[in-house]
Simulated scan of single mutants.
Amino acid sequence: MIKKSIDVKELLELSGEKVFLKKLGKEYEDDYWKAFNEGDIESTIFTGTQQVFNKTNVESYLQNISLDSTRIDFIIFSKSTKKIVGEVVINDIYRNNRSSNLRICIFKKGDFNKGYGTEALILALHYGFGMLNLHRIELEALNFNERAVEVYKKVGFKKEGIKREGWYFNHRYYDLVTMSFLEDEFREKYIDSQYNLKNLL
């Protein structure tokens, strides 16, 4: 009997039907800056960005995250265009608690509602629970960003509560919705109970 050969890199690739994820590094510096810089104001507001960035900031940012063991930064590529459409980040990784935070941003309004964010979230969660062995992944969303909250619910996040006046922007405080996903909940929703690595060998 001839066994199917396995390309481990292919096995671990974060690839879906609409998007694929690549770990953010200096090799993507120019493309990342271009995509980020051309992003729309909606993305800036919805993700709670409070800083103004320039290319020098981005270069320093890439250097810093390459040395930070508490985070994994992925850039999101559209499969159809091969262009960067956003980023998804697993950060604040606490190994003892097996927990982390997650954030996602689709840079341009024209790329909203195409399923890019939903698929990127699921791929990142697969990595967090399946490769990093996390138990809990949480996120926060601005309470007026109803579209994002509904996407998170659809993916499987559960609402835990409201962080009252947890975010400040332009003379006002806004509430944050806190949500989380646990490993057992994720596996029940997305992982076939018969899945076994041996079946691939």
Rank of each mutant, 00 (worst) to 15 (best):
D111G: 00
D111P: 00
D111F: 04
N113W: 00
K114Y: 02
Y116H: 10
Y116Q: 04
G117W: 04
G117S: 09
G117R: 03
T118R: 15
T118K: 15
A120Y: 09
L121H: 07
L121A: 08
L121F: 13
L123N: 12
L123E: 10
L123Y: 07
L123A: 10
A124F: 08
H126N: 14
G128P: 06
G128W: 05
G128C: 07
F129N: 05
F129M: 09
F129D: 01
G130R: 08
G130W: 06
G130C: 05
M131D: 11
L132F: 09
N133L: 13
N133H: 14
N133V: 04
L134P: 01
H135M: 11
H135K: 14
I137T: 02
E138G: 08
E138T: 11
E138V: 00
L139N: 08
L139C: 15
E140M: 08
E140R: 10
E140Q: 12
L142E: 06
L142A: 03
N143A: 12
N145W: 00
N145S: 03
E146Y: 07
E146V: 14
R147V: 14
A148K: 02
A148T: 10
A148P: 07
V149M: 12
V151L: 14
V151C: 12
Y152V: 02
K153P: 02
K153L: 06
K153I: 02
K154E: 11
K154H: 14
K154V: 10
V155C: 09
G156V: 08
G156P: 09
G156S: 08
F157N: 03
F157H: 07
F157G: 04
K158I: 14
K158C: 12
K159Y: 13
K159S: 11
E160W: 10
E160A: 09
E160V: 11
E160F: 06
G161F: 13
